[in-house]
Design a protein around this nucleic acid. Structure first.
Lengths: 215, 215
DNA sequence: TGTACATCAGTGAACGCGCGTTCACTGATGTAC
DNA sequence: TGTACATCAGTGAACGCGCGTTCACTGATGTAC
């Protein structure tokens, strides 16, 4: 037990970040309904009123968490694309696999990012911040498909229809894998290596559908 | 104001069903966090302790809601398949479009069905009932793909990999459409007819990927 | 056809709980002179 | 280098709230004889 935590200074210094960390940890360990403002403060070692010096209310804290999640996702996708060879549609495939990998590595963040009640304000509109952060992640996928079209590998259909198809597939797979798909039992009964394989197979199949017919 | 409701008999008679109806209505109108046992009872016009004569606890009520949802989904998919022509892969396409249509018509039920915290018991295992009901819905999709393989239209890959790809795509599209996809703005800016079109286009594209290459 | 009685399906008060938020406060920090 | 003072970032008590669940109860129903 670190006494530094008990005897810490009156001013925390990094409380905003510490609260976000604590909230994410709670989401991971106890699920989304375990993320309460009071418990977040407790976890960060601070009184339950302290967060109000950094966030207007609970919604603002959770929104910040979602924005940070989308930024990490975009970074993961960009890294995957950059690491893959430029030939054929390997980069698009890598982005798809990375999307599912992110969801599997950070299921709590992934759920927060797409939970509608966390994105809608009381008036029913959407948080601009989350929308912008989401756009930056979507853009990575979209750009790779556009690149594929220029290279003559992807059919010249409407770009957003193609991108939405690819996104839907990987998004659906990610949610089914992390939330459990009722009624679906993996072919191999859940071998541990199965999951990354499954993302690669699914990504390959959906890319087949986007590909131009005549090679 | 129907006096029949005020002067109703002491015994309700259909309380179990009335509670499920009330819960679904609340989910529709106020979101999932608006579904509390007390409010459900209030909506059904009954005291807050009455539900305990029909459900062991809140989780049991919500589980029943999820099971009913999967049963309706399976029925919708079967109907769509039955109504479509048997040629080519029209039936598979119809099932895909119907899946998204169900989610759009019943977003509240759809969310309940796939909410993991509603399916997991305290011990971490899954509700057998929900799993069985989910399997019946999945089976419709799976059967159509198997049929496509027999007809030589779908590639002879592992059946569950193909079915998971199709399911993932339509499931992902459904969730992105009903929960809002951060950063995605539909090409047409959200024309009302766009949504059913988009499901048809996406379904067609993913089916392309499942199709055998050499015709 | 009546009556006794078990069972079923409601009621309403009460329990303990943790939540989000507000408020007056206090200790620490930094800046002007 | 010191001192006054504004500002910042914490504290802890308190607010009102609605929740899930339990309990002793009571009214209604159905069955045996």
């Amino acid at each position: 037990m670190p006494s530094a935590k008990k005897d810490g200074p009156y001013h925390h210094g990094q409380l905003r970040d510490a609260l976000l960390d604590a909230a994410l940890r709670l989401a991971r360990e106890r699920g989304l309904q375990g993320v309460t403002l009071r418990e977040v403060a407790r976890t960060a070692g601070v009184s339950h009123a302290a967060p109000y010096h950094h966030f207007a209310d609970k919604a603002e804290l959770v929104t910040a968490l979602a924005v940070a999640g989308f930024e990490r996702l975009a970074a993961v996708l960009r890294a995957a694309v950059a690491a893959a060879p430029a030939d054929d549609l390997a980069r698009l495939h890598a982005a798809g696999v990375a999307y599912v990998g992110f969801a599997q590595r950070e299921p709590a963040a992934f759920r927060i990012m797409f939970r509608p009640e966390l994105r809608q304000t009381e008036t029913g509109s959407f948080s601009t911040d989350i929308d912008a952060a989401g756009r930056r992640a979507y853009q990575v996928l979209r750009d790779e498909i556009a690149r594929g079209q220029l290279a003559g590998l992807v059919r010249p259909d409407h770009l957003d229809a193609l991108a939405l198809t690819a996104w839907s597939t990987m998004h659906g797979l990610a949610t089914l894998l992390i939330d459990g798909a009722p009624g679906w039992t993996g072919s191999d009964g859940g071998a541990s290596s199965d999951r990354t394989d499954v993302a690669a197979r699914v990504a390959a199949l959906v890319i087949e559908g986007l590909r131009v017919r005549a090679r």
